[in-house]
Design a protein around this nucleic acid. Structure first.
Lengths: 243, 243
DNA sequence: ATGCAGAAATTGGTTGGACCATTGAACCAT
DNA sequence: ATGGTTCAATGGTCCAACCAATTTCTGCAT
């Protein structure tokens, strides 16, 4: 009967601090890289102890929203708004290979869908932007005789942006970050990513032709080549599975 | 020339605390729900101040690994291991109709892929679990003459878990949360979700038959019905698009 | 013995103040 | 210009209290 009795709010000091800080950031229109007030000033202005401010900032730091530099200050690392949703992803105990495959499966699902949506929605301006990134990537490929992570990533980002759904870019950006965290250890595959090269242009062509299913198919082929590279790398590993 | 000079690591107090704590959890074989030592004891044992312990625990709390209850103690909320990988995902905004549709597009991509993977990988135990949730959902549907969010969500969760990739469950959980944030306000569609009901069983049947593409197709049909409901709701809305 | 209200101990939350370590800017010497 | 020195600002750590919620214990009334 008495179901929706709201969970009363007795104390929530540091949450309140974060809320206030998010409001401040919005009002001051602070963006990534900008410095926010010192802990001492925040503590004084908000009428809380510096320790409480620190706990709040520690939470933001853990979420990657903020970076603290001793002796310098605290800086924004990402855009923050009062109505953000935080979802920390945790990948437990994965050896490298399992983690990489897990992120790839997410990429397979999202990149295919994003490419299809992009083929439906991309306008002239978006198409031009994607082609520009594609040209840059192909140029880098020729120059350095190999895939370049940066230009590759920028191409994919342009596709996600043109999908009209910001969540794609945000989620896949997280996947890329995780991917590259395992990646310090190049699994011994020399020409990693080489096989994926031609599919970038075919994806673009299907998008430009407003062919959703074609774009999806090409995106799937691209991911398949990466998965293949990964499996070859796993074979090279075998024993170096320390721990 | 002097490219790869890594930024050296001098101090990392609270990181060290978390590492030690993770080791402790492993050694004591603590699982979710179990209580870990009090802050005062940790501070004493680790020879650091209680403040430092608190900062470390605050980070874990922000990551959803731990829950603190004043007067009671600190409890594990998830399995932790010394080598786990965290990737905070923060999603911006999306409290309007467009945001709702955005979450659905992500769901379409991930649910389809998860259903397909599940059809490939689910073993007998996982299948039994999924069917159990399905039965519960159908029973709730009969009893209350309508879809039940909770049982519905549990069914999908079981599918994600059986997909063998923990990221699916975590990411879609974020989508559900975003979805339900807006959802307290039923868009005026009375029998929301009704149309999706039969597809739950067809999804299960395709999974049980180890038919990935069939499962994917049924999952897509399910999402399509929800999108349809949503569009009907949007038509009902029109003006109440506050803020 | 049993049940239960109130006291006491436990535990996380907050405060204020102190000091350390790092940074960056201003200044100085060469 | 280059490289050291000094100094103020800032985050990092520590300590010692006290507050607030919870749990446990105690002792009285039944």
């Amino acid at each position: 009967m008495t179901d929706h009795l709201p969970p009363i709010q007795t104390t929530a000091r540091d949450d309140a601090v974060l809320k206030a800080l998010a409001g401040f950031v919005r009002q001051e229109a602070l963006g990534p890289g900008e410095k926010l007030p010192t802990e001492r000033i925040l503590a004084e202005r908000l009428k809380v102890s510096r320790n409480t401010v620190r706990e709040a900032l520690t939470r933001w730091e853990g979420l990657g929203l903020v970076e603290r530099r001793q002796g310098s200050g605290t800086y924004l690392k990402a855009a923050v708004s009062p109505d953000m949703l935080h979802m920390p992803l945790t990948l437990a105990g994965g050896n490298d290979f399992a983690g990489l495959m897990a992120t790839l499966e997410i990429r397979r699902a999202l990149e295919a869908e994003a490419a299809a949506l992009c083929a439906i929605r991309a306008g002239k301006a978006e198409l031009a932007e994607i082609e520009r990134k594609l040209d840059l990537m192909e140029e880098a490929f020729q120059t350095r005789a190999g895939m370049s992570s940066d230009e590759d990533w920028e191409f994919h980002q342009a596709v996600f942006r043109a999908s009209g759904n910001p969540l794609f870019e945000q989620i896949i950006a997280a996947m890329y970050e995780m991917f590259h965290r395992f990646w310090e250890h190049p699994l011994g595959v020399r020409d990693f990513g080489h096989a994926s090269f031609p599919y970038h242009r075919t994806i673009f062509e299907r998008i430009a032709a407003h062919d959703p299913e074609g774009a999806r198919a090409e995106a799937l082929k691209l991911i398949a080549t990466v998965e293949d590279d990964l499996k070859r790398g796993a074979a090279n590993l075998k024993l170096s599975d320390r721990r």
